[in-house]
Amino acid sequence: MDGTRSAAPINLENVRKQYPDGTVAVEGLSMDLAAGETTVLIGPSGCGKSTVLRMINRLIEPTGGTIRIDGTDVGRQDVDKLRRSIGYVIQNVGLFPHQTIRTNVGTVPRLIGWPKAKIKERTDELLSLVSLDPARYGNRYPHELSGGQRQRVGVARALAADPVVLLMDEPFSAVDPIVRTRLQDEFRRLQETVRKTVVLVTHDIDEAVRLGDRIAVLSEGGRLQQFAPPAELLASPANDFVREFVGGDRGIKLLAVTPIPREKLRPAEGAVAPSVAAESTLQEALAVMLREGSSQVVVQSNGTPAGLLTVDDIVAALAAPQPGQQPEVVTTDGAQPSKPTR
Score class of each variant (00 low, 15 high):
M1K: 13
T4R: 11
R5I: 04
D21I: 03
A34R: 11
E37S: 15
E37P: 06
T38A: 09
I42H: 09
I42G: 06
S45M: 09
G46R: 02
T51Y: 08
T51Q: 12
M55Y: 03
N57D: 08
I60L: 15
E61G: 13
L82W: 11
R84D: 04
Q99Y: 13
R102P: 05
K116V: 06
K120R: 14
E121A: 15
D133G: 07
R140C: 11
P142V: 11
H143A: 13
L145I: 13
Q151K: 07
R152V: 02
A158H: 06
V164A: 15
L167I: 00
V175E: 09
I178E: 14
I178S: 08
Q184H: 10
D185W: 07
F187N: 01
R188E: 03
L190G: 00
Q191W: 02
E192H: 12
K196Q: 08
L200M: 10
T202F: 04
D206R: 05
A208R: 03
V217I: 14
V217A: 05
L224E: 01
Q226A: 01
P230N: 02
S236C: 12
N239Y: 07
D240N: 10
V242K: 01
E244N: 09
L255P: 01
K264Y: 06
E279P: 03
T281I: 02
L282R: 03
M289S: 00
L290K: 12
S295K: 05
V298G: 15
G303P: 06
P305A: 04
A306S: 07
G307D: 09
A317K: 00
L318S: 02
A320T: 02
P321I: 03
P321K: 00
Q322S: 08
P323S: 11
T331R: 12
D333W: 10
P337R: 08
T341E: 14
